[in-house]
């Protein structure tokens, strides 16, 4: 089920992977997402915990360190590929919208 769901990333999933392009820990991820989106996207601790667990199981991210029970994660090659595909998909959506608008103007 998880693999199926990961075909399309939800907003929290997308931003978590974005925040893990460099080593980051739980609270750091939450803060970075909030800052990056200006508070539009907020990921709660429980949601983050579940998603990180799922990502780790799917080998999309990996744990790189644990200091005083603070776990640090980073995106894997597989995760990077997934993220790139998602970015590509989003760009295509925007491009399609652009094409459509131009088409309307040309009529």
């Amino acid at each position: 089920m998880a693999r199926e769901q990961l075909k399309n990333l939800t907003e929290p999933m997308y931003y978590i992977l974005l925040a893990l392009q460099r080593e980051n820990h739980g609270y750091g991820i939450m803060q970075e997402i909030e800052e990056l989106t200006g508070g539009r996207v907020i990921v709660g601790a429980g949601t983050l915990y579940t998603l990180l667990g799922r990502f780790e199981k799917e080998e999309i991210i990996e744990q790189v360190a644990e200091e005083e029970r603070r776990k640090t994660y980073i995106i894997t090659e597989k995760g990077r590929q997934l993220l790139d595909e998602e970015i590509q998909r989003l760009r295509m959506l925007l491009a399609d919208e652009e094409t459509y608008r131009k088409g309307l103007r040309g009529r």
């Binding site: 907020i42 709660g44 601790a45 429980g46 949601t47 998603l51």
Partner: peptide
């Protein structure tokens, strides 16, 4: 505070 669960599908 930020709720613990912010994604109802995951909850």
């Amino acid at each position: 505070p930020v709720p613990i669960e912010t994604d109802e599908e995951i909850r």
